[in-house]
């Protein structure tokens, strides 16, 4: 069974009597353990697609099945619980809470989970260790570099061991070296820990770290291909 099943999915914004389609009929499946990149120029609908896939927004037409169940049956609170339990998010702007320690930032998803507070410290510290920032645990975001901030964001996305990680232009605000480090972590998460990863990017090089690229244009799928020569962040580093 596919983790994600999308059929004729469309999102049309209605405003001022004008219909603006952001997505008009896309269909694809994503299986457990996949690493899929969604590409497209700005305005192609890739962010809208990610929001719908990540339960942050609802589609207006078509079908979206997550783990075989349609999203239409869920209330907003149900969606929040599923986001909390099964989805992790990494954003281009990092979206860390300012003046809040790394540890507390990573703990944030735990606040909305069923896990008892006594266990939070260990879980959060393990996630921070996984991205190699255990020495920065008491720092605040303003004391970190962009790459480190994004690693904190990944630790936060990981903390509840989600089924799927959505990364929205995670390297968009980073220099190439930090960006590579982020891609390495994402690839590791996908290959070693079996997390499904959906990556949004407009850079072909970054997208080629994924196993499959879906290209969007004007709200429609332009192409959906397996990547032949996949980049491996670690190996590239090795050859450098």
């Amino acid at each position: 069974m596919s983790l994600i099943e999308v059929k004729d999915l469309a999102k049309i914004y209605y405003g001022d009597g004008v219909q603006t389609p952001a997505l008009s009929g896309v269909s694809f499946d994503i299986n457990k353990g996949d690493f899929v990149a969604i590409m497209g120029p700005s305005g192609s609908g890739k962010s809208t697609l990610l929001h719908i896939l990540g339960f942050l927004d609802r589609h207006t037409h078509g079908k979206y099945l997550f783990e075989g169940k349609t999203i239409d049956d869920y209330s907003d609170d149900d969606l929040a619980h599923i986001r909390n339990k099964k989805m992790g998010f990494v954003f281009q702007m990092f979206n860390l809470l300012p003046r809040t320690t790394i540890l507390d930032n990573v703990k944030l998803p735990l606040l909305y989970s069923d896990i008892k507070e006594s266990g939070w410290d260990k879980i959060a510290k393990d996630a921070i260790k996984a991205v190699g920032l255990e020495k920065r645990i008491d720092h605040e975001p303003s004391q970190l570099s962009g790459g480190e901030k994004q690693r904190v964001a990944i630790a936060r996305a990981l903390v509840l061991k989600p089924e799927i990680i959505f990364a929205d232009e995670p390297t968009g605000n980073l220099d190439s070296k930090s960006g590579k480090a982020i891609m390495e972590i994402l690839q590791d998460l996908n290959e070693k820990d079996g997390h499904t990863v959906v990556l949004i990017t407009h850079e072909t090089y970054t997208a080629e770290h994924a196993g499959r690229i879906i290209r969007l244009h004007d709200g429609k799928i332009e192409s959906d291909k397996i990547v032949d020569h996949r980049h491996h962040a670690k190996k590239d580093e090795f050859f450098k």
Partner: peptide, 16 residues
């Protein structure tokens, strides 16, 4: 606003 959005993305319900 963006903090609220983040919290919601991470699983906070309206009541939270």
């Amino acid at each position: 606003t963006s903090e609220i959005g983040l919290r919601k993305a991470l699983g906070a319900t309206g009541n939270n």
